[in-house]
Amino acid sequence: MIHVPVYHPTPSRARLASQLTEEEQIRIAQRIGLIQHLPKGVYDPGRDGSEKKIRECVICMMDFEYGDPIRFLPCMHIYHMDCIDDWLMRSFTCPSCMEPVDAALLSSYETN
């Protein structure tokens, strides 16, 4: 059985990749490209773990563990990479502060 990915051309609509229009495919490819340009890293709580750092991914509500892959948004909020990548395929706003991610990312290209 072949796995066909499901995408969200609009936040409220999920469709199989094979059912997307050409325009929707282009928009999704652009979104994937923008997501891949967001900085990523590995969670490190600090030597003693008492630093005032975010300790929980607000999407999955799980504590960050040392070494977890994380992604940074332009607003400086961090999330598990899998959680935020999936979120951003549906909505291109930060789940914590609701800042639009694409506007901040695109403006960074204009200043460089």
Results as ranks from 00 to 15, higher is better:
Arg27Pro: 00
Pro5Glu: 09
Cys75Tyr: 03
Pro100Ala: 02
Arg31Thr: 15
Ile2Asn: 12
Cys83Tyr: 01
Val42Thr: 15
Ser18Pro: 00
Glu99Asp: 11
Pro69Cys: 11
Pro100Met: 05
Arg31Ile: 08
His80Asp: 03
Arg71Lys: 13
Tyr7Pro: 05
Ser96Ala: 05
Arg71Val: 04
Cys97Tyr: 06
Leu105Asn: 10
Ser107Val: 13
Ser50Arg: 14
Gly46Val: 07
Cys97Phe: 09
Asp86Leu: 06
Glu110Pro: 01
Tyr109Ile: 13
Tyr79Arg: 03
Tyr7Gly: 02
Ser91Arg: 11
Ile26Asp: 06
Glu24Gln: 08
Lys52Phe: 10
Met1Val: 15
Thr10Gln: 14
Ser107Gly: 04
His8Ile: 04
Ile84Tyr: 02
His37Trp: 07
Arg71Asn: 01
Met76Cys: 01
Ser108Arg: 08
Asp48Cys: 03
Ala29Arg: 11
Ile35Cys: 08
Tyr43Ala: 07
Arg13Val: 15
Val101Thr: 14
Val4Glu: 09
Ala103Arg: 14
Gly33Thr: 13
Ile28His: 06
Ser91His: 07
His77Cys: 09
Ile78His: 01
Met98Cys: 09
Leu88Trp: 11
Tyr7Gln: 02
Met76Tyr: 00
Met62Ile: 01
Glu99Leu: 08
Arg31Ser: 11
Met61Val: 09
Gly41Asn: 06
Asp48Ala: 04
Leu106His: 10
Ile70Asn: 04
Ile28Gly: 05
Arg31Glu: 13
Glu56Asp: 04
Glu65Lys: 14
Tyr79Ala: 01
Gln30Ala: 06
Ile78Phe: 00
Ser12Cys: 08
Ile2Gly: 01
Val6Phe: 12
Tyr43Val: 02
Ala29Gly: 02
Cys97Pro: 02
His80Val: 02
Thr111Arg: 12
Ala104Val: 03
His3Trp: 02
Ala103Thr: 11
Cys60His: 12
Lys40Phe: 10
Leu106Tyr: 10
Tyr109His: 08
Arg55Ile: 11
Arg15Thr: 07
Val101Tyr: 02
His8Leu: 07
Cys94Leu: 12
Ile84Asn: 00
Met61Ile: 10
Gln30Glu: 10
Asp63Arg: 02
Gly49Ser: 14
Leu73Lys: 06
Arg27Thr: 02
Asp82Gly: 00
Arg13Ile: 12
Met76Ile: 00
Val6Trp: 10
Leu34Trp: 15
Ile26Phe: 10
Ser107Ala: 15
Ile78Met: 09
Pro95Ser: 07
Pro74Tyr: 08
Tyr66Thr: 14
Met81Ser: 12
Pro95Val: 11
Pro100Ser: 10
Tyr66Ser: 14
Ala14Ile: 06
Ala104Trp: 09
Tyr7Arg: 13
Arg55Phe: 08
Thr111Met: 10
Asp86Trp: 03
Gln19Cys: 08
Phe64Ile: 13
Glu24Met: 07
Asn112Tyr: 09
Tyr66Gln: 14
Leu16Thr: 02
Gln19Phe: 01
Asp86Asn: 07
Asp102Asn: 13
Ser91Phe: 09
Asp102Cys: 13
